[in-house]
Write a protein that binds this DNA or RNA. Structure first.
Length: 756
DNA sequence: GTCGGCTGGCTTTTT
DNA sequence: GCCAGCCGAC
């Protein structure tokens, strides 16, 4: 089992008692170490699967872990708790719903559900739309919850935040009233459950002697607290992560958890997995050099014994369209030489960049697949059916009620809903329960809708889950509605797919025979699995909320892979193109102002580069269409940060760094400027003077120097302003010169010409 | 209640 | 350039 591991891997796998931090570099066999350790604990140390808790971030990672453990050890993994933070918290809360103050049937709101719940409350409370918007409030609420802060513990720094806190409190009341739980709430509730209930806490701390965490760098403060709580004082925490691949700070992930864990738990117990089994030497050397520019890393250097391989190919084109064209040609050449399309990935910083690429690939007839976008359970038609199913499960679910009460239309308009809401408000009840208080014509229509729901609920008692889904699809009128739509065919297919998904679900859960709406009779005997104590329908709805469906390729699909760098994390390809390497695109313009944001962008670049096994391409364009405007961009600093010896310049006349000095882009710029005037000049002025580089300029002798500006020095040649500081006589700038690298210059003295 | 036109806004998104 | 959300017209 451990014979094929390298020394560091073996050390990690066979680490004894205590806490351990494993710094697992990209491609260093992280998953293998995790799964082998679990197998080793059970097989060689006689540890019971029962005392193992393994946490991941994605369902996919959790599944993969289980599959791989089962491949090593022919044991039943049932007793183990392996899952996502959210999945495991859900399990805890279903088990102990009473202690957690929840109905056992509580529903989970995904992000979209949460937003619509917030919108609804927002309208009801008549919030000032010029001061707040629902999205901001959603962010506020989630970020509070991710820090473990309840409304009463919030500290508002100003009046505006006071309103946010107030809204948070009202939102929470609404959730309680409706028996729904959002993603962050799953974690916070589970955390509070353990924190406030010493008996339960003792039970789980006693049980889980081995706690293993994957992608530790992505944990948020609440997850950290949850882990420490469930581990208690006697358990062994095995945390695997890579601070250099932390790219989810914007979602609350806190990289400092790694430092904290080292301080609080691991101490000197840190193992680095630095041998890389994925990429060639040139790629790793360049990636190492790049990431070294970040400060406060835990420190790590990837190496390989499989040779230098090919240098990184760098190509600069005039426009984004030509960049796409060139990628296409390169892809075609690779395909002609026998590379499989699915082994080629084209990466970009933001989704908007995919359009041009898609256009070229599509026109040329090269099969491609774009990742991202809506997933199966997030599709409109699917959410509609799920809303009916949720109402069958719990008719007091107002979010679902509002979603489908008039879809397909059945003459229940905004006026009627308003009336109903008012009644519900007055009687402090759900919309469903408010129906009998209605009068007039709308009352009849609403009563008919209630009858429909009751008919469905009745059906649920006598049908299996797939049958029920089919029944609801038909009797809700959704099937007929989409049949009548011009673009409805695909949606109809998805509805059928939902029936299939239900069938697969009951198969896998071993509940095929139960009626969808009934709680199994032997439910209470089932201590191992709280989900088994739910009706098949309830379990399916939970499944639909926690697992939005795969965005990953089906195996065997023959297509070029297009995705954002974020989406590429954890994947690898023989050939990788990283496109759009421009200052303002990658690094993104919104990240230029703060050093910690820039460092995250650099980590993102690091992730992008380390996806490549054999060949890595970096491309950039001088100008790009963005937000409907043609804009001019400087080269990404990340290209400049790579060692020249690992690069192979494919653009005309490469020179020292930029590859552009020989055929200066100064001339290019002139040409482009000429071609796109005046719109282009205006766009540029907006770029540098406007929102992007705000507060990033100094004025010296009446001339303004801004970050991102192109300048020319009589001796050093052309360069780009990276940083500015000081005032007047003391003003300084750090400038990246193409020929001689970075220089700090006093702006009052240096003879600089501004060229762009 | 539905459709069409207008305006504004715009990174990334495991659960 | 594209999409979502809103508003006004039918």
């Amino acid at each position: 089992m451990i014979a094929q591991l390298n020394d560091a891997q073996r050390q990690a796998v066979t680490f004894g008692q205590g806490h351990l931090l494993v710094l697992a570099g990209a491609g260093s066999g992280k998953t293998r170490v995790l799964t082998t350790r679990i197998a080793w604990l059970i097989h060689s140390q006689g540890v019971s699967p029962h005392s193992i808790l393994a946490v991941t971030f994605t369902n996919k990672a959790a599944r993969e872990m289980l599959t791989r453990i089962e491949a090593i050890l022919p044991i039943n993994t049932r007793g183990m708790w392996v899952g996502t933070f959210h999945g495991l918290c859900n399990r805890l809360l279903r088990f102990h719903h009473r202690e957690a103050g929840l109905e056992q049937t509580f529903q989970i709101l995904d992000s979209a559900d949460q937003l619509s719940a917030i919108r609804r409350l927002f309208k009801e409370l008549n919030y000032d739309e010029t001061l707040f918007n629902p999205r901001e409030l959603q962010q506020f609420i989630n970020s509070q919850k991710e820090q473990g802060i309840r409304p009463d513990a919030c500290v508002a720094r100003d009046q505006r935040e006071e309103h946010c806190v107030d809204f948070y409190a009202r939102y929470q009341e609404q959730c309680e009233r409706e028996g729904v739980v959002d993603f962050a709430e799953l974690l916070l509730r589970a955390y509070e459950l353990l924190k406030n209930n010493s008996v339960l806490r003792a039970h789980y701390q006693e049980r889980f002697k081995y706690v293993l965490v994957d992608e530790f760098q992505d944990t948020n403060p609440l997850q950290y607290a949850w882990l420490t709580l469930i581990a208690g004082t006697d358990s062994n925490i095995f945390a695997v992560g890579d601070d250099d691949q932390s790219i989810y700070a914007f979602r609350g992930a806190d990289i400092s958890n790694m430092f904290r864990f080292k301080q609080d738990y691991a101490g000197e117990n840190v193992i680095r997995l630095e041998q890389n089994y994925r990429s060639s030497g040139h790629i790793l050397d360049a990636a190492n050099q790049l990431i070294a520019a970040n400060e406060g890393r835990l420190g790590k250097n990837l190496w390989t014994d499989s040779g230098q391989g090919e240098p990184i190919r760098v190509r600069i084109m005039d426009t984004d369209a030509l960049e796409a064209q060139w990628v296409l040609e390169e892809v075609q050449a690779l395909l002609a030489k026998g590379t499989e399309p699915q082994d080629i990935a084209v990466l970009y910083r933001s989704n908007a960049q995919s359009r041009v690429l898609e256009h070229r690939l599509f026109t040329a007839g090269v099969p491609y697949r774009v990742y991202g976008g809506l997933r199966f359970f997030e599709r409109q038609e699917i959410k509609h059916v799920l809303a009916y199913l949720r109402l069958v499960h719990n008719p007091n679910d107002d979010t679902s009620w509002l979603r489908v009460v008039n879809f397909p239309t059945r003459g229940i308009g905004a006026r009627s809903i308003e009336q109903l809401s008012e009644l519900a408000h007055n009687y402090q009840c759900s919309l469903y329960r408010a129906v009998p208080f209605m009068t007039g014509a709308a009352a009849n229509r609403l009563a008919t809708f209630v009858q429909l729901l009751q008919q469905m609920a009745h059906a649920a008692q006598g049908m299996t889950l797939p049958e029920l889904v089919q029944f609801v699809t038909k009797h809700s009128g959704l099937a007929e509605y989409y049949e009548g739509q011009r673009e409805g065919q695909e949606r109809l297919e998805n509805l059928q797919e939902l029936v299939n998904a239900a069938a697969v679900f009951v198969q896998e859960e071993g509940i095929a025979d139960h009626a969808a709406g009934q709680i199994p009779v032997d439910a209470h005997a089932s201590v191992a699995d709280p989900m088994a104590a739910m009706s098949p329908l309830g379990a399916f709805l939970t499944h639909a909320s926690l697992e939005a469906g795969d965005t990953q390729a089906q195996a065997g699909e023959q297509a070029i892979q297009l995705m954002t760098v974020h989406a590429a994390k954890g994947l690898e390809f023989d050939v990788v193109f990283v496109t759009g390497l421009e200052e303002g695109i990658f690094p993104h313009e919104r990240s230029l102002d703060a050093e910690h944001d820039l460092e995250e962008e650099r980590r993102l670049m690091y992730v992008a580069m380390t996806r490549a096994r054999q060949r890595l391409y970096l491309t950039r364009a001088h100008t790009r269409m963005l937000h409907g405007q043609r804009r001019y961009y400087q080269s990404s600093r990340f290209i400049a940060e790579l060692p020249e010896e690992n690069l192979h310049w494919l653009s005309p006349a490469p020179a020292a760094y930029g590859g552009e000095a020989g055929q200066p882009w100064g001339q290019h710029l002139g040409a482009q400027m000429h071609r796109w005037q005046p719109g282009n000049r205006r766009a540029q002025a907006d770029n540098y003077g406007g929102s992007i580089y705000r507060n990033r300029a100094v004025t010296v002798n009446g001339r303004e120097f801004r970050i991102g500006m192109g300048v020319r020095h009589p001796k050093f040649g052309e360069g780009t302003v990276l940083r500015v500081s000081g005032e007047g006589e003391n003003a300084q700038a750090e400038i990246q010169f193409q020929a001689v690298g970075k220089k700090n210059l006093a702006l009052a003295i240096a003879k600089l010409d501004i060229i762009s």
